[in-house]
Design a protein around this nucleic acid. Sequence first.
DNA 1: GGTTTTAGGTTGCAACTGGAAACTTATAAA
DNA 2: TTTATAAGTTTCCAGTTGCAACCTAAAACC
Lengths: 160, 160
Amino acid sequence: MMGKLREPLLECSLPAALESMGERWSFLILRAAFNGLHHFEEFQSELGIARNILANRLARLTDHGILQREAMPEDRRKIQYSLTEKGAALLPTMIALRQWGERWETCVPAFPILVDARDRRPIGEVAVHAHDGRVLKKTDLIWALPQDIAADPDQMQAAE
Amino acid sequence: MMGKLREPLLECSLPAALESMGERWSFLILRAAFNGLHHFEEFQSELGIARNILANRLARLTDHGILQREAMPEDRRKIQYSLTEKGAALLPTMIALRQWGERWETCVPAFPILVDARDRRPIGEVAVHAHDGRVLKKTDLIWALPQDIAADPDQMQAAE
DNA sequence: GGTTTTAGGTTGCAACTGGAAACTTATAAA
DNA sequence: TTTATAAGTTTCCAGTTGCAACCTAAAACC
């Protein structure tokens, strides 16, 4: 990830991502949503978060299109919060952070264990992969300008 | 990620991970470190962060073993901050969050582009993979108890 | 149809956290 | 010896968070 070229540190998408997810509780609320929680009181009692902060975060996550709120038809007092496509797209980030915490902070395997529903085998470690599937480390990455990027063989074939 | 079984929402490794990385600026400082920044003034001028907060975050990240600090031998005023192995292990999390921001927030491809140093081709999307490499979505995941986990074929072979 | 219950919030207030700018300390350069 | 510089500290103020108590609109009960 070294080299002369460097990422512009403040115009990139990471600050944009942190705009919606960088506040305290946001990740924990998101995880609760991934775990099937849907209602204000569920979040409140499971997480032990203050009600005003929870209300604030749910509104913020909804504003950012990460959660969607919908009044339940059978009891219109009940609001169901559920992940949007955009919210669900945070799955790899969340699992990556969880795996990191497991490996480097708690140092105990999570319990219960997250497995592939199809074959009930544990999921792999989230990693950065090359186009061909090799796992890449920090030192394997560099920044490149569009013209320095190797062409996709499929595209080359199509162009021939 | 549904089913009767659910993750204990407050004893898991995610809160532990957020303990060190959940504060404002932590991720941006980490990213700057990945981009080869090493010194207080570099972080300060690149990120525009308040000096006291920067000092606080650098100390916190150092305490948590994510960065290490070392006075440079040629100029002992200069402190070099660099990523530890533990800090470098946050690479997949950071790339995942960046890719998410790129896809769902800024909606423009990052520039410059992160490529594999070996073949200069863009890196893949960070995703959750099954043991055999299939990409898993939220609905493909379930929580399992140790006894419900399918055995690893390699281990089975070894046991036979 | 009037009272009660409940989900999902607000409000008020104390404690904590974040930021800008000035100040400090140790080291190095002139 | 003075001056400059890296890396913080300190001060002060504004904004955010957390907790408890209160509010409100929609069901549910009678």
